[in-house]
Design a protein around this nucleic acid. Sequence first.
DNA 1: TAATTTCGCTTGCGATTTGCAAGTACAAAG
DNA 2: CTTTGTACTTGCAAATCGCAAGCGAAATTA
Lengths: 134, 134
Amino acid sequence: MADSKKRSDCPVSCSLEIWGDKWSLLIVRDLMFTKQCTYGDFLKSDEKIATNILAARLKSLEEVGIIERTEHPDSKRKMSYKLTTKGVDMVPILFEIIAWADKYSTIPKEQKTLLKKYKKDKEAFIKTSIKELK
Amino acid sequence: MADSKKRSDCPVSCSLEIWGDKWSLLIVRDLMFTKQCTYGDFLKSDEKIATNILAARLKSLEEVGIIERTEHPDSKRKMSYKLTTKGVDMVPILFEIIAWADKYSTIPKEQKTLLKKYKKDKEAFIKTSIKELK
DNA sequence: TAATTTCGCTTGCGATTTGCAAGTACAAAG
DNA sequence: CTTTGTACTTGCAAATCGCAAGCGAAATTA
């Protein structure tokens, strides 16, 4: 999974090599917008990710430093995932994706409310979000 | 390529179904930041996309209305691709990706200059970019 | 005008990745 | 000490990717 050879020096290309697939950003989304933070939580998401794909993505996201894996306070067998600073810094990317989707399709009410707040004052909203996620 | 069944109503998930792969956004990037607009141009990009993958992505990006295909003014066999309004509206997504990449790795000088302008006044910069692309 | 090159793809095929189902390891609860 | 819950791993068929070669039509060259 850990791609050794870079295709180019382009930041867009490098970013896509890390999370350019149909699943990685959904894990980031879950960690960002919902309280979902365990392997089992991610499996319950609407998109129904396969167990092996989830395990592989969690591993690679951890390897590139976007998420970190810690013991869940409740029990020793439970693992808890959370966004690192690098992961939290993806908030603007996620919101611009949602903003774009909102412009060209119908998005759920809940996300629409959040989006409104984001658009009203992007910088302030991002600062608050980042603080809350830490 | 045209996925018929949506995985969920989540805007992030829906967006990823459209361009969530290692190549689609590179085509958008080329149309956005360089003068590359033909099939042959895209093939020349550093990342070396395969011909069949390129053809498939161009087709699906056209189907979802992000790019449009027209005859090149120079010759009848040449095809010219350009971003639609929907494609141009992806400018903020691309810039936030570049901004994130800049924070956690080294990006080329050229992009750094553009990024600086973007960060200085995002709204104004986006407006100008969109105008220029049309 | 006949041969050659250019351009935008398509095809074949082996290698990789995905997605589904089932299984495993192991801590905790009963 | 059996059962349950949690986090994965494994096997395998199907889909997708990536490389090389080919193809048809327009343009260029001889």
